[in-house]
């Protein structure tokens, strides 16, 4: 492929990413309005008078038609204005800026550790011809994948926070060395789930790669052991894992809603739960838009990485 064609493909992908982000925005705008609940009534509490609610609706500009709301919302977006919370008048972008780093930190940490652990596990098991080892590997990973993450999290809390005093049950301190004390358990649980998925995909790719004809030609060419492992086994097997992982980072953002609630981490997932419960339209829209853009962007990066590793990958 000439570099020109490559550039065009990348640009095409970018355009697609922007389009998808637009639709994410539209859908999140519609979804939150379709769900029951009135932000004005929620803010004023259960005993509020009808007139007061109406007045607040007017003040929050919720009395105009959805189409008008949508145009003013999009217009705001182009100015980098995501609106203010209907609940406490805090700037949405500000809230995201405060909560997103924590979430991204523990997602990236768990992805990093998951990679570090999965590669040797997948390689060793992909290498072994013992049926019983492969069988037990498959069973264990299946159990982990099939168990809901909140259940694993609760078992983790029970084992490490309640029975042993190794981790706080919940809460967070944002200073650097202290925060590790609060983060290690959620990160480990996330890592565990990721390892199960990644090592399984990688192991089956390695098994496939092992039987490829080019591996045989590599043996015949007397390729050295290290080079053989990296260039004839690992590199040709990595692409599916990298692509999967980049997609999963997006779904992991969704999963943070659960983990952050359980561990009471002040991340963006917990913010989203609160916003949905309060029908805080701008906040929900803003967070979902960020989730969408991050997901689309990461899968784009993932595809590029996969292509860099293995030119057979189509982008």
């Amino acid at each position: 492929m000439t570099s020109n064609l490559f550039l065009r493909k990348v640009l095409g992908r970018l355009v697609r990413a922007v389009t998808i982000s637009f639709w994410v925005m539209v859908i999140s705008f519609l979804l939150i309005r379709l769900s029951p609940g009135d932000p004005a009534a929620t803010r004023l509490g259960a005993g509020a008078e009808q007139e007061a609610v109406e007045a607040l609706r007017k003040q929050l500009k919720l009395d105009v038609s959805p189409l008008e709301q949508f145009t003013s919302y999009t217009a705001g977006l182009f100015r980098g204005d995501l609106g203010v919370s209907l609940v406490n008048d805090v700037d949405v972008l500000e809230t995201i800026r405060n909560t997103l780093p924590l979430t991204l930190t523990y997602i990236f940490l768990s992805v990093f550790f998951a990679f570090l652990i999965s590669i040797p596990i997948a390689t060793l098991i992909g290498w072994s011809n013992s049926a019983s080892i492969v069988y037990s590997f498959r069973s264990i990973t299946s159990v982990i994948i099939a168990t809901p993450n909140f259940f694993i999290a609760m078992v983790g809390i029970l084992l490490f926070s309640v029975q042993r005093d190794w981790a706080p049950v919940f809460g967070y301190v944002s200073e650097f060395p202290e925060n590790l004390k609060y983060l290690w358990l959620p990160v480990s649980i996330n890592t565990l789930i990721l390892v199960a998925i990644i090592s399984r995909v990688l192991q089956s790719s390695i098994v496939d790669t092992k039987s490829e004809e080019f591996v045989e030609t590599g043996i015949i060419r007397g390729v050295g052991r290290t080079r053989f492992f990296f260039y004839y086994i690992l590199k040709p097997s990595m692409a599916p894992t990298v692509v999967l992982l980049s997609y999963m980072m997006g779904t992991m953002l969704g999963a943070t809603v659960i983990l952050e609630t359980i561990f009471s981490l002040p991340g963006i997932g917990r913010e989203l739960v609160g916003a949905v419960l309060a029908s805080d339209y701008p906040m929900v829209q803003g967070i979902l838009l960020f989730f969408g853009v991050i997901t689309v962007f990461l899968s784009f990066i993932g595809d590029l990485c996969a292509y860099a590793l293995d030119r057979r990958v189509k982008i």
Partner: peptide, 14 residues
């Protein structure tokens, strides 16, 4: 040695 399948003979990643 010349492998069986020309299409899968060369290593795709180098």
């Amino acid at each position: 040695y010349i492998p069986q399948s020309a299409l899968a003979g060369p290593n795709p990643v180098i």
